[in-house]
Amino acid sequence: MIGANDFGVFFNPKDFGTPAILHLSSGNKHVVGIYKNPQQTAKLKGGGFVEGNNASLLLPDSDAAWLNIRDCVTVAGSEWQLVKQPVPEGSGLTRVYLGVKDAKQSTKPAIRY
């Protein structure tokens, strides 16, 4: 059975890990996560392609604890913005959904709750 202490193998940049920078209000935090790139496509033999899902970054819970919606993340040389609150997966890992960062976007939600 895989335990929380075994995640280091998966997050190693020599294996599946990708270095990332979390741009937090308290300062930048360098982490390693498992990056799912939406630009990766699978070409079909008969023509066409299948696009990937939304961009995301899988992080240990401890690294994702301070992230909030609209925070910025730099991963694989691209700047992203969190498009929704990080989602704990219940296994000691948290999925962070990323959207394209645009300097014209507001850093505050348009809808008040």
Rank of each mutant, 00 (worst) to 15 (best):
D63Q: 04
V75W: 13
N54T: 07
P86V: 01
K84T: 15
K29G: 03
L98M: 03
I21F: 04
Y113W: 10
L67W: 00
L57Q: 05
V31F: 05
N53S: 14
L58N: 04
V83W: 03
I111E: 03
S62F: 07
D102K: 08
W66G: 15
R70P: 01
L98T: 10
L22E: 12
N68P: 00
K14R: 10
L93G: 00
G3R: 11
D63T: 00
V83H: 02
L57C: 01
F11N: 06
V50S: 14
G77N: 07
D61Q: 07
T107S: 12
S91H: 10
V9H: 08
Y113P: 09
Q39K: 15
L22D: 00
R70I: 09
A42W: 02
N53D: 14
Q81A: 11
K104V: 12
N53T: 06
P88S: 07
G48S: 06
F7T: 01
V31S: 05
S62K: 11
D63R: 03
L57W: 02
V87M: 02
G17E: 02
P60K: 13
Q81G: 06
Q105V: 01
G52V: 04
P38A: 11
K29W: 03
D61C: 04
A76S: 13
K45R: 02
N37S: 11
G77V: 05
T107Q: 07
Y97C: 04
L59A: 07
W80H: 11
E51S: 14
K29I: 08
K101M: 09
N37H: 08
Y35W: 11
A4S: 08
A55E: 06
G99T: 09
G52Y: 08
G27V: 11
Q40V: 15
A20F: 04
I69C: 14
H30I: 10
L98D: 06
F11T: 02
V75G: 14
N37R: 14
H23V: 11
I34G: 03
V9I: 09
A64G: 04
G46L: 15
K14H: 01
L67K: 04
Y97I: 06
A110N: 11
Q105K: 09
S91L: 05
G99K: 08
D61V: 06
A110S: 14
A65E: 15
K84D: 15
K36H: 10
S62T: 13
G48W: 13
R95N: 12
S91E: 07
P19G: 09
I34K: 06
G90H: 04
L57Y: 07
N53Q: 12
G48F: 10
I21S: 12
A65D: 08
I69Q: 15
L82E: 05
S62V: 10
K45L: 07
G8M: 08
A64I: 00
P88L: 01
V75I: 12
G17H: 08
C72F: 04
K101D: 15
G99A: 04
S106L: 05
W66M: 12
G92C: 07
